[in-house]
Write a protein that binds this DNA or RNA. Sequence first.
DNA 1: GCATTTACTACACGGCGTTCAGTTTCCATA
DNA 2: TATGGAAACTGAACGCCGTGTAGTAAATGC
Lengths: 235, 235
Amino acid sequence: MTRSRRERLRAETAREIKTIALKLMAEGGPDAISLRAIAREMGMTAGAVYGYYATRDDLITTLVGEVYTDLVDTVEAARDARPADDAAGRVQAWAGALRTWALANPQGFRLVYGDPVPGYRPPEGGPGAAARARACAGLTALIAAAWPHARAAHGHTSYQWSDFGEELGAHVRAEHPGLPPEAVALALRTWGRMHGLLALELYGHLSPVAFAPGALYRDEMRDLIRSLGLVPPVD
Amino acid sequence: MTRSRRERLRAETAREIKTIALKLMAEGGPDAISLRAIAREMGMTAGAVYGYYATRDDLITTLVGEVYTDLVDTVEAARDARPADDAAGRVQAWAGALRTWALANPQGFRLVYGDPVPGYRPPEGGPGAAARARACAGLTALIAAAWPHARAAHGHTSYQWSDFGEELGAHVRAEHPGLPPEAVALALRTWGRMHGLLALELYGHLSPVAFAPGALYRDEMRDLIRSLGLVPPVD
DNA sequence: GCATTTACTACACGGCGTTCAGTTTCCATA
DNA sequence: TATGGAAACTGAACGCCGTGTAGTAAATGC
């Protein structure tokens, strides 16, 4: 059962490829991830990498999954550092951790949410989809906690469960019985609201016109929390 | 004064290069813009293009400017189709035109707001900056019209003019005397709010989990308009 | 008519993803 | 422990790419 020496070496090499790829990405952005550069850094030939990843997009897909998972781990941990009954604090913690992570890993943000690479199109399933599902579920949980206060302002729209992905809908109905699809819509809108300013900032569209992006984001998140019927924390 | 035949031909060729570049982009995304492909399409050599644009990034920069300008023209036109005293309608028109344009020109949206191309970094000045300035000014004008209703909810944050770009600040103070910097902050937050869901949708992050992105965007914009102290139009 | 400027070609360089035939290295089994 | 076979890797190639540079053909201005 213990993996053979060959398998261990193989796993180690695959790991090293990913590590170097992430290093190259951190230094030069997602486009700097080239199989040739990775091979060069490892003292190998470009062709050798094909023994581990069938194509460059396969490697990118794996990286997207890992980075996305790291992001979701981070925001979930920040959220769980607040008590479960502090709905506003948990939203704020999630949002704050998201920006902190994004500023610390700008290229990772681009990898996950941008055009990872020239012609890259994310595959349907895969690790990226799992991380995204976790993110959507996490956001919906935040909204579920706030829903008693938010329903007055956001319960009048009309959505059906069929407006959302099979998996997400099933998860929400199992995890939050009685929560209407309107709440999922609000969760996804919340996602967009967190994403907007961050994307503008990280792609350099904000810096020429605004020198205090952190304040903008903080106020936007406060407004979001207020819009959920909650009271924004003072810190 | 009338431009010589040489100059006319030259301008025509430069125009053709841009047109073909936009066609390639519409077909295969911003990364499909390659000087060799353009030259091939024109029956020229790749090197010949260098007579018109010093580098590929120069061409990209020009395209970003043109596409961005087209976008701003579009949203401004939609806004101006509503009466000047219909603040809510003008916000809605702007937002609606933005999404319509983005769905009609998805690759243009990516060109302007994403990583236009592998190692591309937008230059400081240039046509893109001018279009962005127009967009920010337009958004601020929308907020200025709503400010009497919005100030109660959004006037308590603290910003200074130095928190914003020189040019933007000067423009706003000239155009909207008495408008505080908090309104500019609100305008930029509004920009982010419009951008977020759109970016998620156009980069394919929404489609696996939400099948009614238009409804999400509509409701988000309604909420935005309400948050500005205005009454969302019914249409 | 001629000299100059302009537009363009042809070619080269290095980098990229990807493929493939051939070689080396390691492991399990006889 | 020797050997057969699999796995890992090399080296070279193909066709893309951006970008220079030297040379050529044509249009222009005097």
